[in-house]
Nucleic acid binder design. Sequence first.
DNA 1: TGTGCACATTTTGTATACATTCAGCGAGTC
DNA 2: GACTCGCTGAATGTATACAAAATGTGCACA
Lengths: 234, 234
Amino acid sequence: MPNFTKEDCFADLKLRILTTDLAPGSALDEVTLAAHYGLSRTPLREVLQRLAGVGYITQAENRGSKVASMDIGTMRTFFQTAPMIYANIASLAAENRTAAQLDALKSAQLDFTRETAKGDASAAALSNHRFHALIGEMAQNPYLTASLDRLLIDHTRLSQTFYRPASPAESVLIKKAADQHDAMISAIEAHETALAIDLTLQHWDLSRDRLERFVRPDPLPVDVVSLKDRRNAI
Amino acid sequence: MPNFTKEDCFADLKLRILTTDLAPGSALDEVTLAAHYGLSRTPLREVLQRLAGVGYITQAENRGSKVASMDIGTMRTFFQTAPMIYANIASLAAENRTAAQLDALKSAQLDFTRETAKGDASAAALSNHRFHALIGEMAQNPYLTASLDRLLIDHTRLSQTFYRPASPAESVLIKKAADQHDAMISAIEAHETALAIDLTLQHWDLSRDRLERFVRPDPLPVDVVSLKDRRNAI
DNA sequence: TGTGCACATTTTGTATACATTCAGCGAGTC
DNA sequence: GACTCGCTGAATGTATACAAAATGTGCACA
């Protein structure tokens, strides 16, 4: 598939990483990728460097590139850090957003609702990513944006399963998330910083519950009798 | 000056940017730099990409690289953002620091006091940078570290004049900063997170006063008589 | 004097050939 | 039988030649 531009390649690799089409920790072969995108190795390597700079991949001298891993340790810090950064970003966004940025945000939200309705899980996850990245742009704070972008990478990868509703109860949660998005848009549009923070933290709580269940899933149903036996055995 | 390794080149460019030997906004010519470091353009370009990824420089398609600028707009967000990130980093550092990291921190502080005593301003600024970057490593939080590193770039560049004491009063401030460093080390060593936060915010207050005076310097002494004339003229 | 255009120069982007490093594997030795 | 050593292949790292883009310059012309 020849004649991808460097920018296309960059965007496509980001997508494939966010959707875990490229699994965390998996190795990236330069010649394979270069051939795939119809680029020579030099520009492809530049794409990889840039991806490394934004936290999508990691590189080791003489040992190539890997998709950024998601070990249990960084998951802990993820849950620690996300609400603080999200809230501050939301506040700054409500303060500094431009009209054009607001339009883009509304458009991303339209995509999001459309794709959740269709049940297109990975597309919905990507729209959600774009929604929150746009709020990051609104904040106009390059320092915090650096944190936010990294958080969103892991957030999106973790939430891959979220938008694939398994039960009616989960469909309700997805609907709730979309409603929260709408409320956030209103708050940002009205420059209501305190409200934006509040809504963002509520949105985070919803997200966190679901993500934590993914990281540490509900225990499997067990045979009560044999469980009792094991307990006695200890 | 041939036979620099890529890593050397990376480190040296960081230094020259932090000391404003390479001024904010100044253009970086690839062939000149490549010749200077004895590298060919390919690896040099990779160094530049990495520097761009960490926020030291900016790159524009077909238009080369520039040292990251320090416009008045980002300065505002700098003062907004720094205390929050610094405080959170300090708290996490006090929680997670290893013994080896503590040793490195103490060593950086030794360098710092030695260089301020010698009056070596740019060396002192770099040691100070290293001191705070090490606290960042202790935090073990890749998300926040991304913000911190960017903040420290601008912080160090802004503080270039700080360690070149103009008046005895300023020497006292430098001494105070060094004392605060010592107190922070103790707090981190003792895992006292609350104290570490407190000390960090005090340290920031000291820093901020001095930095703001640099951004918006004290008015020059004026001839009172002619000043009165001008006032009447308005 | 000022404006616009074409050309020349400089600088960046790309492809490719070559060098180096690393990992796996087998033969030889203790 | 286990270990070391060295070979081999496959990957990454580097240099350089060439292509494309952008900037600057000189000149013609209004």
